[in-house]
Simulated scan of single mutants.
Amino acid sequence: MSDKFTTIEEQASYGVGRQLGEQLAANSFEGINISAVQLGLSDAFDGIESQVAMQDLQVAFTEISQRIQKVQEAAAEAASAEGETFLAENAKRDGVQTLESGLQYEVITEGSGDKPGLDSTVRTHYHGTFINGDVFDSSVIRDQPAEFPVSGVIAGWTEALQLMPVGTKWKLYVPHHLAYGERGAGASIPPYSALVFEVELLDIL
């Protein structure tokens, strides 16, 4: 650890800068100039007149926003196409069932208990991955079953759970429109992502 910042004020000041930097890194753009960012921060804090005219700032912000939007749209189109291709090929495999909604499932274990309804609350174990196999969430890894209302989850889950007797374990292949759609879910699930879940229905509460 650095001994450059020895006082409480210096350490807190560095912490403020770290937080701003982390926020900026999470919402950055190609070509960003950190030196210019630092100068803008310093000028604003010291009450110095902007070195870039407001009209020019607005033009620059608009241009960068449009660039970011184009990049996001291209990534979304690629993800959507990749998901559609994956699901089309997956549907051809033996044992994969495709419902009218587009949801696909594969039976791993068939239970014999009751089926939950839309108003039910259930306890499940699940393991969620992207179509490339990367894990984004897993109660199995946490070794802690999850409880939630059937109506309070993504549409693909809501549909599947009502078809699953207690004790059943299915592998779900969920199109983006039955998952988190065009918005995704925070930083963990990009827009237009098709998702794969192994879901075990443990109990109806």
Rank of each mutant, 00 (worst) to 15 (best):
A12M: 12
E10R: 01
T98I: 07
A88L: 01
V71A: 13
A53M: 05
S151N: 06
N132R: 14
N27E: 10
D43Q: 13
N33H: 10
T121L: 00
A44R: 08
V96D: 08
G156S: 05
P190W: 02
Y173N: 08
A91V: 01
G47H: 08
E30M: 10
V122Y: 07
G152L: 02
F86H: 00
V71C: 08
L24C: 11
Y105K: 06
G186D: 00
G186K: 09
E182I: 00
V52S: 05
D143R: 11
E159S: 01
Q23F: 12
P165H: 13
R123A: 05
E73G: 00
S65T: 06
I131F: 10
I8R: 10
A194N: 04
A160Y: 06
Y14K: 08
P190E: 09
E77P: 00
S50H: 12
A81P: 04
N27L: 04
G186V: 03
I189V: 15
Y180E: 02
E63S: 11
R18C: 12
A12H: 11
G17W: 01
T7R: 02
Q23I: 13
S28I: 08
P191W: 04
S120H: 00
F130K: 05
E159D: 05
Q38D: 14
L99Q: 05
K92L: 01
Q19A: 14
Y14R: 14
A155V: 03
I154V: 14
L103N: 05
V71T: 15
N33K: 12
Q97V: 15
A185Q: 13
V59Y: 11
L163I: 03
S13Q: 09
I48A: 09
G167K: 03
D3T: 09
K4S: 05
Q11R: 06
S28W: 14
L87V: 00
P190M: 01
G184F: 05
P175C: 02
V153T: 15
E49H: 08
E9A: 09
E82Y: 10
T124L: 07
S112A: 14
E147H: 09
F45S: 11
T129I: 11
V71H: 08
V122D: 09
T121S: 07
L163T: 00
I8E: 08
Q55G: 10
H125W: 14
A25V: 13
I48R: 14
E9T: 13
W170S: 07
